[in-house]
Amino acid sequence: MPRKESVNIIIAENSPVLAAGFSLCLRRLPGLNVNIMEVKTLENLRDCVRSAKPDILLVNPSFGGLFNPKEWREENNGENVSIVAIELGKLNRSTVSLFDDTISVIDDLDTISAKISRLSTSSPFSEEKETLSLREKEIISLVVRGMTNQEIADKLFLSIHTVITHRRNIARKLEIHSATGLTIYAIVNKIVDIADIKV
């Protein structure tokens, strides 16, 4: 899992002080790579959603009059967007219930961080490294010799799906996604000999 997941967040807030404040706080969250877009009108918001694929919409409940998450979702194909209310004072419960969560101006960074991680589909804290299994090393040695997934499957008597799953796990564990990168890894870690590599 890459350490820095990217989270797209739209801030729909008319107060420039609040918008800038949230923007800055969100970008300071540890372990998260946050892309912020600020919008000032409902029309801006619609265009922004179509071009930027947000994960989270942070919105003032009074944005554009009175912001209704349910209606907005229906009009904008926003099923996958988490909608979070900006809480200035205490919001009444019926308002809060419309949103997926609220972030208050007095929340500390840890609280905000926890909320954002939970709401975005990313998992920024899964940093632990696993070691490669023997089977995975065997597959690496075949990949870097230039064999295709099908050839590897045939040689090891595996299904091609199993090979693909292994390769996906290898890429995740090593954070290496290219054949050349894998070759470098394999040589340095003596899984293959450099003389076996054709370039």
């Binding site: 070759t183 040589i187 340095v188 370039v199």
Partner: peptide, 14 residues
Amino acid sequence: SDNVSFLIIKFFDE
């Protein structure tokens, strides 16, 4: 040619 240096360049070229 006897270490991974050329592969690093290859990676960059790709």
